[in-house]
Design a binder for these strands. Structure first.
Lengths: 205, 205, 205, 205
DNA sequence: AATGAATGAGCGTTCATTCAT
DNA sequence: AATGAATGAACGCTCATTCAT
């Protein structure tokens, strides 16, 4: 039954993702996986040849899902701060929705995402995937600010690329610190942070 | 032997700090500590009652050293971008120098700092210490931009506090991503990042 | 391999019982268990989730085996001292035989039994099991002396229940002191003690 | 200051006795001793060359104190059950008082006494001390029942020595089971047990 | 008489992984 | 496709003991 097998594989991936997000890669043991999936050790090893393989697969599973609601699909026209905000928040919400759908749970704890990354960080391929994702986001922001420039919504003489890059780092800072600091984050917190950052940013440029 | 005892204690702290920064808290075992310190397991336990105690002590040791070259000591006048840059970079360099002196090594690998933080994150007291440190940095930036405002170095109508906060997040983003991405960072990379961020920031405001 | 699994489990239980009786719970280490069973640490943990779990299981295994040759099966008529002695010693011998069969060894050292009990004493459930076992023995003795009363084998005016209880405590005292004092007890010693106690007891009532 | 030293020695002995009675020999660590005595590891080693030495010394200290209120001092005339009871309970109470005085505490937990004995059991000298103590008690009971015989207080034709021995074992059984079963025994429980045993015993002989 | 730094063997437990079925 | 028995290295930690001061 290849179909059943695929289902099992995806079941494991979903549980693994939940656990990695909740506890961090290192702190998820096969015992946890067995308990949550209801499968045996052997079954998990049948689908993923090692814990690292499971990590990589889980991460790619997450990326794939995120990308489906990705940036490149956007055909919206960015003509002012509000349309930028709308589109940006929209994308982020879709990404969060994607993860939610993946996990099948209403509220997600992103708290341990960083420490899920710890393991990813040691894997060149996954690291590159993240870098690409970040670059994509950077490129998207650049496009937005170039468009805003065309609509004269950013001050003359200021480079839209530098502006985009600055916002990118601000968003990264706020986002990461949130992972680090918060205990029980939901998507609402993220949307709040994004809105606040965008508002502040448009005040200073 | 109180003197010898203190020496041993500090020796352990230095080694532990090195190891925690290099491998992350979870990945540092007593075996590592034994190997690096040349002491026995019992000796380490004699000085620190548990691994968590060692973590807390190590972190407080780090904080203390960082704070000694802290922000509040600065009496410099911030009157333009260049004096701001000079003071800010100066402080950061002193902090890095402090850590270097602590570790007794020329080059530091910061890329596991985040995963040293993982453990810290689960300790309320240490978490609060970090938050305070961040708040101090934020306050310092606010003072700088209020001063720059007085010297008419930031555009009229723009709130220096919002500006300071924005730069703070940009710096956090750039810094943290650097921890995350780089494998072998030295202080030079940090200084570069700080300079680039400051330059870009002044271009966009 | 459910069959092999059960075999292994019982093997571990037998070895554990031997060791606990020989050295006392506290002094039996996983190293001992590994050495005697020829299994790995992991294998033992696979079958028993902790040392305490192993203790409980071992004790229940022992109880079960003892109970199978238990008191309640006896249909003998107690009509005089000699038939009482015969039945009582018979039961005790069967119990000892049961343990011997369990352990697969000819001579048993009971002198650490008390210190096997030390651990049991701290576990409410096991403690209750022992208490029940003792109560059963008490009840059995009561039945015997009620029967002897009917056959006019105990002096008139004396309460058979009090008599039974007294003998019970005498037996406990003699038995326990034997555990405590002897280094190398075999069942012969026990039978001797039982006989002597019964003889003396019938002399004084 | 030899005097101060002796004080320290006795302080350690008292604390050790308390701890051994409370936790059992094996479960008392130098850490416990340090905490309770307020002395350093070195100080305890200065007075007792090993843990076993401390055990032996502690036990001898206990024996000495018990013996001072011992059986041989009794000049009372045992002429009936009540005078026997009075004298026996009196001796036991004095022994308990002796231990109390030794420990300086009002209520004693005898719960772990057996497991204090575990260690003693492995020391031939201490074992012999206990045996002697028990023999003394046996001899005392023999004297009592010989005296009762003289006063025609035990049935004709019954051997006072066998009677004494029987009561001895009954008392041992009841006492030991009490150590084993009870969680929080005080001297009251012991006195109750002794009274009940004596009463029952005189009912059956 | 007393301190406490240091040792290293040993403890119970968890872990990712292998493999016969 | 799936089970779970078995492995053995590694983990954090406690222990009684030694010894320079």
């Amino acid at each position: 039954m290849p179909k059943a097998s695929l289902t099992t594989r995806v079941d494991i991936l979903k549980i693994a993702l939940q656990l990695f997000l909740k506890k961090g890669y290192k702190d998820v043991s096969y015992q946890d996986l067995i308990k949550e999936t209801g499968l045996s050790k052997g079954a998990i090893y049948h689908h993923f040849k090692s814990k690292e393989d499971l990590l990589i697969s889980t991460f790619e599973f997450l990326l794939e899902s995120s990308r489906q609601q990705g940036l490149e699909k956007q055909g919206h026209i960015i003509q002012d701060k509000e349309s930028f905000r709308e589109v940006f928040i929209g994308i982020k919400m879709e990404q969060i929705k994607g993860i939610k759908k993946l996990l099948g749970s209403k509220s997600i704890k992103f708290n341990k995402l960083l420490f899920f990354f710890e393991a990813i960080n040691e894997n060149e391929r996954l690291k590159n995937s993240i870098m690409e994702l970040l670059k994509e986001e950077m490129k998207f922001l650049e496009k937005c600010f170039i468009s805003l420039k065309k609509h004269n919504k950013i001050p003359k003489g200021k480079d839209p690329v530098v502006i985009a890059e600055s916002l990118f780092w601000m968003l990264q800072g706020a986002e990461m610190l949130m992972f680090f600091v918060k205990d029980n984050d939901s998507e609402k917190d993220f949307i709040k942070i994004y809105n606040k950052t965008i508002d502040d940013f448009f005040k200073i440029i």
